[in-house]
Write a protein that binds this DNA or RNA. Structure first.
Lengths: 210, 210, 210, 210
DNA sequence: GATGAATGAGGTTTCATTCAT
DNA sequence: GATGAATGAAACCTCATTCAT
């Protein structure tokens, strides 16, 4: 999918490494080995080290997601269809194959960490995430407000709170799939349940009751 | 709340340290300093080190939550009231004051890490978490199934998927509050919105539509 | 001489290591090995690393020198005798045996580096040097001004410039001795020439011509 | 002054880089950037790397100094005038503008390092320095011996020791000017004091007392 | 001549963990 | 129970140096 530059290979390798060992235990040496580059090259592309690599994984994902959203949503006008499309796309980008689930795991587990970064030297990368994140949030919130204005979505709900609910729902549903895929534990539902549950969440929770 | 033994002081200090720096950057030396004990003493109480401390924070929380749930739910029979009470209690234990929000942050961010632990020596502590976690999951799933059996909750929803949605919704709503409290960023909603949104999630999404 | 605490052992080992390899090539690992301590312990006493070790060598020397000067000069009132005593003491502390010459070499070669340090984190150590240095400069300048006031020293000379000349003269004369001791090269003079030359420098250059 | 070939630009850039960061912290990458060439090119001109660059800075300086000395001294016969000319020329070459002071700093601080070099591969460059250095020393020592023979300079002084004194005096006086120029610290004297003090050093210390 | 991405040896540095007191 | 100086494995990270272009 993404062009196989060495920079991208490093990010892919880091995704795998972090997914398997967690950020705390991921080592630069192993990332380098997985990407089949020297450890020094990682610092050439990401001078601030491991944290910048993690941030860059996130930036790359959000950029692609936002780009695709923009394209996909262009031709859809119905708020229900639009919000459903957002969920579908997130699902598609993170669940389609097991490789994607690694990315899902990293994004879900490490996203909160992003908000905590104060390092002055990483301000730029951090800002990029914030921009992409705000863009995403704005997309969702706009759809919700739009639906409320059109009388389709429940006007009594706070759009920001709804967005958090949707975000959390998608996150935990996907996370369960990851656990299922990577361990023996069954959490009691499958990919089809995710689709159906999210549809119902939109129809019943988000839409105006007749 | 909890008795101020040195052991508890260590866990409290660790919660703060991990909340501020993340598990990866938390150091035993700083935890010791914050707890006003020597670093050697941490190993007296938690011989397996940092990871055991993290696990112990989690165990302590889940034990208390499950205990209280048991007590509180005893006198409630209506499924809607029961599931609402679960949300209320989680909220209460994690949001009541800002100190609690630190705990919320640690639990939310580091919980996934728990599932990755294979360390033979920590099997016992890990098992304790699994037990508490299953107990919690079982409590929720039982309420949902019960409600479905009674024709109050929507029978077409997969109980496990619903549980993930509720868990994710509570998590993200609380997490937004933490961001708000610890940074200037406003996510667009407040404590009251959390209550109302969760109530609506239960009424509209979870309950059977008439 | 100095109490053989581990801290002092580290400074002694570092002096030797830096004298032999230069600051640029000195390694913490070798300093540790020479001091017979673990490399980690160096960071326990000198958290800012190699540069702090270098600064600390200097601080220790200047402190001792200033202390002894204070004691020795107490009982001397004649400006000529006083300034001679300063030169003698510097000589004594740096030349008496070959071990001392190592210290001399480090102090002479690396002193200029001290003035260049801007590192915010080393401000304290750097300030200590500045204080000791000013104390030393003040001692010398006072003697010179005193001698000028008494009509013994040449009043037309700028005391600060004279101090630089004396400092440079002592430095280069001692440095030559180090070269001689550590290599085969002969620079054409010996310890006795140093004494005589410095005496003449004081008598002829510094004193008022009759 | 010097022709702006890329080779010279590299040496100039290295002088600045080493003056600002010290030899230990100077990096080839920054030297290349300052010289506006690629780092690879430095190895084209100086295959032995950083040390060879440092040696080359020194060689270039001493060669020019010795050349000029030869020219300037040709027409002067009086020992006092000759030795004064040496001091003047050194001053001129190192103090005339602030750029020169950077060179002074590097030469003063890093000269001792030269004597420590044993690297077989740098034997040639090192030898060049030794040759230039001996030539310089010989020039001075000759003037002094000459003056002593003519009964103008004090015959009781060891010429080599005198040379060290003069060298140290010039060095420290110039060094003080550098400190003054690059920091706020005032060492209590200026360029005029340097001239006067050196004149007096020659007249009073070096010359025979009547 | 000139470039700069890429390497990897070798240094610095951290910090979990121990143990004598 | 409690301390904190001391250890050393193992990570991070730098940067001199190379080489295909």
């Amino acid at each position: 999918m993404t062009e196989q530059t060495k920079e991208n290979r490093i990010l892919d390798a880091a995704t795998l490494e972090i997914a398997e060992n967690g950020y705390a235990n991921a080592t630069m040496a192993r990332i380098a080995k997985r990407a089949n580059v020297s450890s020094g090259l990682i610092y050439f592309y990401f001078p601030k080290g491991k944290l910048q690599v993690l941030l860059s994984i996130t930036v790359r994902f959000w950029k692609i997601l936002n780009d695709r959203l923009e394209t996909q949503l262009e031709s859809i006008s119905d708020p229900v269809a639009r919000i459903t499309e957002v969920a579908r796309l997130a699902e598609f980008m993170l669940v389609r194959d097991n490789n994607r689930l690694y990315l899902a795991k990293v994004l879900i587990e490490e996203l909160p960490r992003m908000f905590m970064i104060n390092d002055e030297e990483l301000k730029d990368t951090r800002m990029e995430i914030t921009i992409q994140n705000r863009k995403f949030i704005h997309t969702i919130d706009s759809i919700i407000k739009d639906g409320q204005d059109q009388g389709i979505f429940d006007r009594d709900l706070n759009p920001s709170a709804v967005r958090q609910v949707l975000y959390g729902a998608v996150e935990m549903l996907l996370y369960g799939l990851f656990i299922k895929a990577s361990r023996n534990e069954d959490l009691g539902y499958g990919k089809d349940d995710v689709k159906y549950t999210l549809d119902m969440l939109i129809w019943k929770f988000l839409c105006k009751t007749p």
